[in-house]
Amino acid sequence: MGGSSIANETVGVSSGREGITFYQIITNTYLLYTVSLISFFLVWDRVAAWQVFGDSLARPHIVALKLYDLTQIKFAGTNLGGHIWASTQRVLIGFSLASFFAVPLGLFMALNRYANAIVKPIFDLFKPMPPIAWVSISILWFGVGEFSKIFIISIGTFVPCLLNSYNGIRLIEPELYDVIKVLGGSRKDEVVQVSFPASFPAIFAGLQISLSVAWTCLLAAELMNARDGMGFLIKRGMDTHQPSLVLGGMILIALMAWLSSLLISLMERKLCPWKRSIDNL
């Protein structure tokens, strides 16, 4: 992070004094990263080549080639970019819709005990429901179209969004409000100067959780029924026995989930420069 942190002393590896020792080389973190990754792909490649899972595991370069092919041809009406966008769009809409309503509602519930008394019991009823459980009922209600998928994503992401913004305010040290009181501030000042900013990290934590739930829900929905999207690619790969397509779809979804989570982290950094560190970057 930017800004000098005067309270911290950096403990650096002393170098150059007597050359680089063997121990320093084998404990270099970047070297270990590289070794770890290469070993992973090597093991994967060998396991696939030796047909440990029969013909159901594609070698890494086959998967890469498959993904490349998909960018060149239309598959089920659109190329790879189209499939990625179809899924991303669903997540984006479902996630935005849910967080747009859930975050303010969570904050409001935490700040107003009447709102809390009205909403909390219903919310507690829905809270333990695994988000995937909504897949079947929403297909019954809304069919297999776009709306149904967005509904599943929204309902799944709603809960962690609300819960985190709610707890974000509930867990604020009460003496911080006393500071505002003693300085001559009003109840409104307490909310604006303490409640909102203090709950920011919790809200962002909620958004991160929601986002990963959103991708899970998306996959569930697309596996059930879809005509495009990354889940569709996986399903089609499964139905037509193309392990490279299944693996390609899996990798793409993971990649997109990672990218979107990175985006939220960056946003958090921008909006909360006071947070000590953001770990998942």
Binding site: L176, D178, V179, V182, L183, G184, Q193, P197, F200, C272
Partner: peptide, 19 residues
């Protein structure tokens, strides 16, 4: 009630981390 005519320095620092 509390008011700006009495300033309080808290036992725990109670600074606003976001400011």
């Amino acid at each position: 009630g509390p008011g700006p005519d009495r300033g309080l320095v808290f036992q725990g620092y109670m600074l606003f981390a976001w400011n």
